[in-house]
Each structure stands twice: as C-alpha cells, then as structure tokens.
Design a protein around this nucleic acid. Structure first.
Length: 118
RNA sequence: AGGAGCAGUCGGAUAAUCGCACAGACGAAAAAUUCUGUGAGGAAAGUCCGGGCACCUUAGGGCAGACCGCCUGAUAACAUCAGGUGCGGGCGACCGUGAGGACAGUGCCACAGAAAUGCAGACUGCCGAUGAUUCCUUUUCAGGAAAACAGGCGAUGGUGCAACGGUGAGGUAAGAGCUCACCGGCAAGGCUGAGAGGUCUUGGCCAGGUAAACCCCGGUUGGGUGCAAGGUUGACUAAAAGGUUAAGGUGACCCGCCGUCUUUUGACAAACCGCUGGAGCUUGCAGGCAACUGCAAGUCGAGACAGAUGAUUAUCUAAAAACAGAACCCGGCUUAUGAGCUGCUCCUUUUU
RNA sequence: GCGUCACUAGCUCAGUAGGUAGAGCACUCCCCUUUUAAGGGAUAGGUCCCGCGUUCGAAUCGCGGGUGACGCA
C-alpha cells in the first residue's frame, strides 16, 4: 500500500485530473494525467479506479487494485516514474483482459506506458 | 468391505524481504521516525424477513389495508427455531410438508362427453311384473308370444384429472345401499391426550375439484424514512464572460446595478461524535426431551472515509487451494463453496 | 448503502380473473420483372431468463435464484 500522502484524496481532485484529457494507454492499462506542476516540490499523487463493470465480485476488483498500487509504490520508491514526476497527479484504470494477470506482466505494462509520457 | 442417512469441524502452513490501517509507548506546537500489539467470513454475499437505534409526521379511536394460518413451547421479534400430530416418500437410518373453511356466498373446470354441480334425471337406454291392445294355444275364471301405449327404473353411455362412494354376493320384470360383508368417507357419543389428534361403539347410506381464484373464519401489526439516519464545532458562500423569455427591487422609460440563469476558471474547501462492550464470547453448574433460560467465573476479538490484510521468493501437502472482502449493530432465512477429518446410526455381503 | 422495474422468434413488441404461443420487420423458397427494388404468395424459426411448488393443466399463480436497466443521495 501507498502512504497517504501519495494518494489522491477527493472527488474534486479526480475531476480535475479527468478534465485535463491527457491519456496514455496500451492493451492492459489506461492512465489519465493531470496538470503540470507549478511548484516542483509538491508530491505527485496517484489514484486507482476499478469500476463495477470490470467484475461483479469485490474480491476480483480488490486484487487488481492492490496489484496496481504495488506497481506504483515500487515505482515511486525506485524513482522510476520518469516524466510523470512533472505532473501533479495521475489515475490508473485496468482493462478487462487484466483479470488474473501476474505482477510482473502488469509492471512491464506500466513501465511501457511511463516511457511514452512526455 | 461396500453403499447410505444425520450432526459437527476445518476454510492452507512456515520463513525471508518490501509495505498498509488503527491503538499504545517514545516525542510533542504539529508532523515525521522508531518500537510493541491487534487487524475480514461461514457465508462478511443476496437484501428475503424480524428487531435495536435515529429523525420526520401524527388530537384520539375505529374501519379499510397488509401479513400470518395443524398443535404446544422458545424468543426482544420473526415468514425463524425446537418437540409433537396428520399426510406423502424411502427396505431402513431418516427426509419433505404453504397443513383453517368448498352444506355462508360468488366465480372457474378448455377439448372431449348425454351430462361438469343443476331442481340431475332432457337424451341414449333396460324392463314391461301391473293395467290396456293384438295374435296364438287349449291346462279355458288359464297359459304363451308380439309391439312398447300407460307405467317402472336409475344399472349402461368409446369421454375425461374428476361423473351424488368402491369391490363382491344376494335380490328383481328390469334395477337400485334395496339388503348383507369388507373398504373409504360423514355425523353423534364413550374413553384417552395439555392440544393437534388417537381409538372404540352406534347411526343413516352421502356431500365432485379449485381458496399459492374472490371470499369467510381466527390471529398479528398498526405512519414514513433510513447511520449518506442524525448531532456538535468551525469555515466558505469568491472571481471572470455571456444571457435576462416570465416574475421582482432601484427607476417616468431604456441602459446599468441588485437578483437570477448558463459557461469557464479555481484540485488549501473541513474536523469530531454516532462507531463498536454487545439480546457479546468461552467454560462450569442447574432447569428442560429440545429450542432455550437462569446463575457463577473468566475474557475484550477490525472500525476505514478514493476506503486498511497485499506483493515477490523458497519449502511442505494431491495442489502456487473453492466460494468469496466488514462499512451502524444484532437474530434468522436463502444462495455459492475445493480437498479432507470426526462422531452416531441404517442397509447389503463375507468371516468368527 | 437503500429502493424500483424488466426479461416472450434473429430484432421491435402483443398476449389478464390459468385451457395447445401471435403480429410487424428480417431469413429461406416461389411468382412478377430483361435484372434489381417495390409488390404478391408460401414455409421455417420458441428451454416464454432458470429451478421448485399449487393445479387435471402454468408465459400467466406462489417461493427461491440469475441477468440487465433505472432512481435516491
């Protein structure tokens, strides 16, 4: 799990990130990216959204959510966010074919997307 | 040994590394760091019932409505549970049961069938004893035959889920509970049981099904919304652009301003209580067949607010293991569920 | 979290006091036409979302599930 200071906290922050309309995606994940930072010292925050349409059962949704959090936690810790550090926030959404995915596959998908961020 | 029935239990383990939530300690203006402890289920699920709790509404009472429906008990309450009764299923252990009333009334019973509940006897039929008619015989105040006029009868009628009891015998002109035996059902009475009911005797021979159709009877409930209920303390209700059809203020009127509507920008925009100690859990004793109740001792076991239990690796097991994630809290019901284990019981076969 | 509604042919829908399941479009075949379209005719197509029950008999009545949609904040 992430410490609280790295998490997006309320719906206004989520709305502001969505409204920026900056999206990167591949076959596994979609990432919405927020505005550029005004002050470079502020922390890049992240959020995770798994809708009820993804799967009916809460256990399956929790599983993918935890995997995504773990990927981001290790990325922040290993300082491998790359250009995402320039932005205030980002939101990660899974696609349907990530059901039953393994951790290492998800990590490589995430790193592939991070490289495409400018 | 094999196959069943019932009840219960378990719901991966160990280690390493990186992490999360809450509480406590340290610290202290606050945060951070460090240490310690605790951290999802038997169904947390479906939201199908019943409560607690909270607010709103309501002058009081009734009717209507809604719900329940064998009996007795349990419970805060229930559509729940326990024990029994009847019926049905199973060789059996055992299992299932929505099980008041169809002589209070109304409706429905397609097709088929003479007829579907009506006042049964239109129709099809059987008989023609008795009375009348015709013919024959000669046992001559008699006997026989024919047709079916009067009349008698309710047996027969390829149907159908179902046809004012069923089977058999007697009886008769033909028949009929007309009579008898057994069975089924009804009513009354006796005995018995706390009751549903059980059992015995007697009686008269009879009443179709459907109430998970309306309804009748008996009983229960009395409104609504749900912790995002609700409460406490704070803070913000700001800026820009455009419109102003209707209503309003200023104004004689227009513009303008206030107001109002739309769009854009503004990611510093709440915190706390409710919030978990309860119809709680474990053990023992007592009462009860049991559900459950009483007493005593011990014990505290999640409480988030974009929402905590995860990830990786190694080893073990048949196996990187089913169904599945608390969101105010309890009691049930229903549904989903891998591999086992334990206890009691029944049936079949074999051996002693 | 709480509540409401729907499910019938490939598609859109009818079907009420329970009695053998229907329409339009589409599909297939035939006619018409030089051909196509339009038009006419014929055929086929159903787990009435699933299971259990009540009933002689259930799309319809009762109970339990499933899927989908919507509403409240």
């Amino acid at each position: 799990m992430l410490p609280k200071k790295y998490r997006l906290k309320n719906s206004k922050a989520f709305d502001a990130t969505y409204k920026n309309h900056k999206i990167v995606s591949n076959s596994f994940l979609t990432i919405y990216i927020g505005k550029e930072k005004k002050d470079f010292d502020t922390i890049t925050k992240c959020g995770f959204v798994v809708s009820k349409k993804y799967h009916k059962r809460a256990v399956k949704r929790n599983r993918i959510k935890r995997l995504m959090r773990e990927v981001c936690r290790l990325a922040i810790k290993g300082n491998s966010l790359g250009n995402l550090n320039k932005y205030m926030s980002f939101i990660v959404l899974p696609k349907e074919n990530t059901l039953g995915i393994k951790y290492c596959e998800l990590e490589s998908a995430f790193q592939q997307l991070v490289k495409r961020v400018r």
